[in-house]
Simulated scan of single mutants.
Amino acid sequence: MLNLGIIGTGTISHQFIEAAQLTQQYHLKAVYSRQLERAQNFLARYETKNLACYDDLKAFLASDFDILYLASPNALHYQHAKAALEAGKHLIVEKPAFSTPQELEAILKLAEEKSLYFFEAARNYHEDSLAVIKQFLADKTVVGANFSYIKYSSKMKDLLAGKMPNVFSDKFSGGALVDLGIYPIYAALKLFGKPKSVNYTASQLANSIDLNGNGNLIYPHFHIALRTGKNYDALNHAEIYTRDGTLILNHIQGISSAHFRRHDGSRKELTLPEMEHLMSAEAKHFADMLNHKNETLYQTWLEDARSASQILYQMRQSAGIVFEADNK
């Protein structure tokens, strides 16, 4: 059983705890927030026996847990992750793990020095459905794809009222690409590997942060069109085009259905594994890695995390999206 600590008191942290508990491999131990009352309110829905709240980061990291789930604002991930590794904790960092490839490399170096594990919580990368889809495509010639993740943000109301939510802030490394566009990127990495080049154009705020955008992941014999956005809603199905027909997925994450439509109009349904919870596969995979240590698979995860970070950075550069972290 892995003792679990949490930084970040938003909805995503509750979702990860739910998924972790379903695996029966984690035990919630401690929560940190800069405001103690917020940590206490966060824990109110859980059995409070042997659970601890902290507003002192050093005391929190010195407490008795094995692995940290980190879901603070994007720009704070690096300092929190560094402190956690120095305190001897394994890391699960919510996507996007870090603002720049340089931050990621520093954390990976420190994790290796400390003999600790780092995982980026890109949940769709770990979905069992993607493994089935990859196997289905193994004997197909892919000629293109269209991957989207577009969802109207709950923070748009604040933005339109003249406020600056973290998700749209250059200070906090926000924007549609890093928040939602990362899902198509991770799906592409899992199915097709690293592209040879990328580009991105976007509708941007005055601070350069993107509200929505279109990009391309360019492979030697095909390219993937990527669409993402946080200021409108759209259907988020994905299509993968082959010489024999089109594979249509109901979404790029939380994939629950897929069918292949051949050029003659006939149709084949893929049988996909049922998903207990959107985040249960990643939670299980991380626990299994810590318990059974498959070094080859772990290195694959790290290389794909590196690729995702580099792709996000290159796409931001292409669009002129600048974070404060870029200048550090």
Rank of each mutant, 00 (worst) to 15 (best):
S63E: 10
L76C: 14
C53E: 14
Y54H: 13
R38M: 04
L85Y: 04
L116E: 06
F60H: 12
P101N: 05
F118Q: 13
A30C: 04
F42Y: 05
L57W: 01
L110H: 01
K95W: 07
K89F: 03
E112C: 07
K29R: 08
A62C: 08
T100I: 02
Y54V: 08
P73W: 07
A44W: 01
K58P: 08
S72M: 07
K58L: 08
C53Q: 07
T23Q: 00
A52P: 03
L108P: 11
A111I: 11
D66Q: 09
E120D: 14
Q79N: 15
Y32G: 01
Q102T: 14
L43R: 05
D55K: 00
E47A: 10
E103D: 15
L51E: 04
N124T: 13
L28I: 06
A121E: 13
Y32D: 10
E105L: 06
A39P: 01
K89I: 05
S33V: 07
E47P: 06
Q24M: 03
E37P: 05
D56I: 06
L76F: 14
L22K: 06
R34K: 12
K49H: 00
T23N: 05
F65W: 05
S63F: 12
Q79K: 14
H90S: 11
A30S: 13
L43W: 00
L85C: 06
Y54C: 04
L43T: 03
P101I: 04
F118P: 09
A111G: 02
S72R: 06
Q25R: 03
A44N: 01
A84I: 05
L108R: 13
V93R: 03
K82I: 14
K109F: 02
K95G: 10
L28Y: 02
C53I: 08
F65E: 13
F60M: 03
E103P: 02
S33C: 11
P96T: 15
Q24R: 03
A30D: 07
D66T: 14
E113T: 15
A52N: 10
D64Y: 09
F98L: 08
N74D: 12
L43K: 00
E105K: 07
G88S: 14
L22V: 09
K109V: 10
Y69V: 10
D55S: 14
F65P: 13
P96W: 02
Y32I: 12
A121P: 10
A83W: 14
K89T: 11
Q102V: 13
F98Y: 09
K114Y: 01
A44G: 02
R45V: 04
A44L: 05
E120F: 00
L68C: 13
L116T: 03
R38P: 03
L85D: 08
F119Q: 09
L57G: 05
E37Q: 03
A52E: 13
E120N: 12
F65Y: 07
E47Y: 00
A71Q: 15
F65R: 06
L61W: 11
K49S: 03
E94L: 14
T48I: 06
R45N: 02
D64V: 08
N41Y: 04
L91V: 11
A52K: 04
A44K: 02
A122F: 06
F42E: 12
A111V: 04
K89L: 09
G88W: 11
L70Y: 05
L110F: 00
N50S: 10
D66K: 11
L104T: 07
P96Q: 03
K109E: 10
P73V: 12
K58N: 15
Q40M: 00
F42S: 02
A122C: 15
L28H: 06
L108D: 12
K114A: 02
E86M: 09
V31R: 00
